[in-house]
Design a protein around this nucleic acid. Structure first.
Lengths: 360, 360
DNA sequence: TGCAATCACTATACCGGTTAAGTGTCAATG
DNA sequence: CATTGACACTTAACCGGTATAGTGATTGCA
């Protein structure tokens, strides 16, 4: 229920032309008139094109600056056939979306790279993958974007084929193995898995629990395999339980793991929220962390430092990740052949939640 | 450091025209040719304009559907003078940004309303308010957006005057008192403050601590005043300490409050993160929650349910909030006189962290 | 001194839509 | 039977940029 109050402002965009100069935005025709030139000459001057004298160019630039001219994006887009914008669509339940700092940081990074290139970012949250694909088709047909960033790769991802079919420039933020012919910016999760496992094994852990993210995501699958491989090589055991990134699932999974016999002496969580929840669950069940069970979160956030004991976590520089993705997409859109980029791996930040394994 | 791998895909947008039909997107000229009509007639048919027979209209629509025509957004924008996009800029340190689900939910809501109207959302994270203002000017000069959503109102907010000067349609998501002539969508924080205070006073609390957000934000100021007023009316004491939404500040503020003598028996936090951190701090100091101190978070999130004891929190429907804001901006942009909208207030969700005040 | 090349522009068309004004055809009407 | 008007279109201009093909004046060189 919402209440409409007193009307306040009169906002009539259509009336701009009538009220005169105040809101009217200048065009190159205005500059041309003031400079006594044609539109073409002004365009040459503004774009550093040859065809005008230095003196004229300076005069044109001065006028442009004085009257605050900026190119009309629609006119330019129509003329040179590029929208000057990239798209990013996320489809995830809103519940898990907001809690993770990942997307905000990613967007910060993307933006940092794009703003210097006068490219904007269209950001949307879609209902499901079908809606996301429809959006791609429609953006492309309408020439609303020049390319897109693809996140949250699925094991069998329908988006890739669609983007390939459309011939739409795109950069995959995720593992190249399911990126088809699209360039990918990615982390080596296999390597990171080894890092975590070695850390835990060095502390004496021999039975390790893992609470995964949703199995449909490709990176979950990759990590699951990597944990199994690392366990085999290091001669230890890994017990997998599937979560879905929510606190609830983290709690349930933790409870299940803590009830197994023998109980794992360490648990790795696929995100910070499940780890925090797992920590609470352990306390509730009277299990000491890290005395009886060590805990590690894959993905760091302020949350990890805030709980007690503070969570050992795998940290990565998402901002830079976003910047790299953006710079790749800029290249791809400009027609540069683009390969995959492997970004720096997650770094293990040791905090209080992981320690030596308890003696039997 | 990042590694460039093998080159993968050849992506040359410029080569589309040469390679032929595969990627070429149809225009109304294509439809006109196939239908044996002029562009104008096709345009009338497509837009439900009079001037063509029903038979012709059907034929045109059939062709359009068959060849997958969608209007070129740039051409339409150039012609009718509207960009078909709104903007949302946030300037906050990335650290506090990501952790709060607020923006993601807000964007979800905005998007839900906009997508039905074929309007896109340009989303950007800016360095500071100056950068944000520059972005507004540039978006407007370039006609990139038809209007913007303004969030995080400051006590003395320079953005309002700029938007008014530009004559740019805008909706303020925040209190009308600093929105100038711009329409606002807002919550009645004064009312909410009373709700919280009455809840706590009913539980016997007479000395209440509050950890505020940054004082530069208008809503912080409003709440601070409201707490003081409510305290006076209810005959209790409120002790304010300023935080900055980070976990660290929440911990410090909590420690400060718990050291005062007499110590407050309840603490209200301006966001969930500081509340969670405060909870941890209390435990660290050996102060029982809610036995010795009750805690309430202003702003609910999965986090609040996840900690122990679960946090009593003020919940609001951010999705709907975003939808209302979007619908207002659509109106404003279309020239409808728009007033302020008061949205439903926060709802107090009672959980384990608040209880009766301890006896002296 | 004559012809070509260069310079600094102008004229014009185009991108893909929308829209005001004009045209030819046919049926209704006085 | 001539006039009117409605209908179903076409013509052409416009939105604000970019790009290509002229054009007149000056300069260079044989």
């Amino acid at each position: 229920m919402w209440v409409v109050e007193k009307s306040s402002r009169q906002q009539r965009p259509g009336s701009e032309e009538r009220t005169g100069e105040a809101v009217k935005r200048p065009t190159i025709a205005d500059i041309a008139r003031q400079a006594g030139l044609t539109k073409a000459a002004v365009s040459f001057a503004l774009n550093g094109q040859p065809g005008v004298s230095d003196q004229t160019r300076t005069r044109v630039l001065d006028i442009a600056r004085r009257i605050g001219w900026q190119p009309n994006s629609a006119a330019r887009a129509l003329s040179d056939g590029r929208a000057g914008a990239f798209g990013l669509v996320v489809d995830r339940p809103a519940a898990t979306l907001g809690v993770e700092p990942f997307f905000m940081q990613l967007i910060s990074g993307i933006q940092a790279e794009l703003s210097g290139n006068k490219v904007s970012l269209l950001f949307t949250i879609a209902e499901d993958q079908a809606a996301e694909i429809e959006l791609y088709r429609s953006w492309w047909a309408q020439r609303r974007v020049d390319g897109v960033f693809v996140v949250d790769l699925r094991v069998d991802d329908r988006r890739i084929a669609v983007l390939e079919e459309l011939g739409m420039p795109a950069v995959v933020i995720g593992h190249p193995s399911v990126a088809g012919s699209l360039p990918a910016v990615w982390h080596d999760d296999v390597l990171v898995t080894r890092t975590v496992m070695e850390h835990l094994v060095a502390l004496g852990h021999r039975r390790i629990g893992r609470v995964s993210g949703v199995p449909e995501l490709r990176h979950t699958q990759i990590r699951t395999e990597a944990f199994a491989d690392a366990a085999a090589e290091l001669g230890v055991t890994v017990v997998d339980v599937a979560g879905d990134y929510t606190g609830d699932s983290g709690a349930l999974a933790t409870e299940a793991l803590l009830r197994t016999d023998p109980r794992p002496t360490a648990i790795v969580y696929d995100n910070d929220l499940m780890a925090v929840s797992g920590l609470g669950t352990a306390r509730r069940l009277g299990v000491d962390v890290p005395g009886e069970v060590s805990m590690v979160a894959w993905e760091d956030s302020p949350l990890c430092e805030l709980v007690h004991p503070a969570l050992t976590a795998l940290h990565r520089d998402v901002l830079t990740y976003g910047m790299h993705a953006a710079s790749r997409l800029l290249d791809a859109e400009r027609g540069v052949r683009v390969g995959n980029v492997k970004d720096a791996s997650h770094e293990l930040i040791r905090r209080a939640s992981s320690g030596v394994a308890p003696k039997d």
